[in-house]
């Protein structure tokens, strides 16, 4: 096993994301606080934790949709705009009459922008992405005619064309059929093999154990971080559950009481 799975602060590879004493929240209410750690370039990391643990919040922080209330997030080797991010709630208005092809093509935005014409090579790449997610033959369908699983495949194809060094997936498989999960998970593995860093928020622990070498357990703070086999344990998950229940009372106050970040660094349990 590579050294980078030993836990935070001990990575040997250059980190693509580094956060320090990071507190993120909404309307002055912190949702996740005092996170410190880094995500090594090329890692395949699952983020798990109870509902309201701040998992999505962390991804939103990395992608820049939320600004840090305290502490910092630093990216290296990747531009914020070029992060491939799959939001938990699809923001796509699927009643809008756009074809699968045109929808997927928007993944090439970084290269072609709003005005440049797609050349033959670009069109081939769009077709390849559509075929990679198993939607060949549906290119001319409107996105509103797709099933939930098919729309998720289309979102993955668009993500794929973004050709990003850092891929963030927020619950990519919720309410998706088993076949689609299997196909999309294969893609995720392939992206990681290509050297991309993938961070996924997931609920299915079995899936995490099979697919993700590294895990981060959140419950409004870092509960544990490290190699999946030794970190994703019943004890750590129970601790996460307990902390999130306690935390939900404490954090009704707008002021964050946890002032000492060191107290909450519990990586590598």
């Amino acid at each position: 096993m590579d050294e980078r799975y030993l836990g935070d602060g001990m990575t040997t590879q250059r980190p693509i994301v580094r956060f320090e004493n990071l507190t993120l929240g909404y309307h002055r209410h912190p949702a996740v606080h005092h996170l410190s750690g880094e995500i090594a370039s090329g890692s395949l990391l699952a983020v798990v934790g109870p509902n309201g643990a701040g998992k999505s919040t962390l991804l939103k922080g990395i992608v820049g949709e939320l600004t840090a209330m305290q502490g910092s997030i630093a990216l290296s080797g990747v531009e914020r705009r070029s992060i491939a991010y799959l939001a938990q709630q699809s923001s796509v208005d699927s009643s809008f009459p756009v074809t699968v092809r045109d929808f997927v093509a928007m993944g090439l935005w970084a290269e072609f922008g709003a005005f440049r014409r797609f050349d033959t090579k670009a069109k081939q790449r769009i077709d390849q992405a559509i075929s990679a997610v198993g939607l060949s033959g549906r290119e001319r369908s409107l996105i509103g005619q797709l099933s939930g699983g098919q729309l998720q495949r289309a979102r993955f194809a668009r993500l794929m064309l973004q050709d990003a060094a850092l891929v963030l997936l927020d619950e990519p498989y919720s309410a998706i059929d088993a076949n689609t999960v299997r196909d999309l998970a294969t893609l995720v593995r392939q992206w990681n093999t290509e050297g991309r860093t993938v961070v996924s928020v997931l609920h299915d622990f079995e899936h995490v154990r099979e697919e993700y070498p590294e895990v981060m357990i959140l419950a409004r703070e870092m509960i544990a971080r490290g190699e999946t086999r030794s970190t994703l344990t019943a004890a750590n998950l129970a601790e996460a559950q307990r902390r999130s229940e306690v935390g939900s009372h404490v954090d009704d106050a707008t002021v964050c009481h946890h002032t000492n970040p060191g107290e909450h660094e519990s990586g590598g349990r």
Binding site: V63, G64, F96, M106
Partner: peptide, 17 residues
């Protein structure tokens, strides 16, 4: 192109452009 994207996926457009 940009108007169409802004219509059906404004938050995506906001992220990338």
């Amino acid at each position: 192109r940009v108007l169409v994207l802004e219509c059906y996926d404004p938050s995506h457009l906001m992220r990338i452009s």
